[in-house]
Amino acid sequence: MRGGVPAPLRVAQGLTRWVSRLAAVMAYLAGWNYILCAVLITFDVVARNLLGFSTAATVEISGYMLACGIAWALAHTLARRAHIRVDVLVNRMPLRLRVWLHVLAVALLAGFAVFIAWGGWQIVEESALFDAHDNSALRIPLMLPQGIWAFGLLAFLVMSLVLLLESALALLLGELEEVDALLGSRSVDDETREALEAVAMAREEQPA
């Protein structure tokens, strides 16, 4: 590490850290939302077979849970560099060229994120105009799930923009290692650590 990070880059780094933290919280909520979804569907199956009733809205609600789960975890997945890139070639290029491609990739992804987020908000507005409800027994106003969903898309957009900002600044200031660390493909070490953590959790002594 060279001493003295220039001020604009420091601000951008702080911004990325802050947004990443928010994104992580949203991703955990998205994950717990899937656990809840499993509970809901299991309950519906049991109720239908043993208790003789059905919520008659499970199909719709779990669909909304999926949509919101995907959207709310997009930003965190980006921060963790887990969105899929075909980087076989990129990883063989010299650092000087590689960092430009990293920034290009995140710029194009941010561009696509703008479109997704815009599309998401546009359907929320349209549902508001129609005062649309779903056809389930609960007649849920579509604005509700679609609004939550679109918020996740917006978070993804913000995440991609702060990453773009930080990496572009770092590139211009010649901090190539930092760009690679920020956007480069996850190293073997990262992935191994993760897998081994999971196995370690399984091998842990049983909790007292």
Binding site: A27, Y28, A30, G31, W32, I35, I70, L74, T77
Partner: peptide, 21 residues
């Protein structure tokens, strides 16, 4: 344990979800 499972599930679903969109 559930918390870690939830995070991993959310991440892998989002990864597929973005491609699906």
């Amino acid at each position: 344990m559930l918390n870690a499972s939830a995070e991993a599930t959310a991440r892998n679903t989002a990864l597929l979800g973005l491609i699906i969109l």
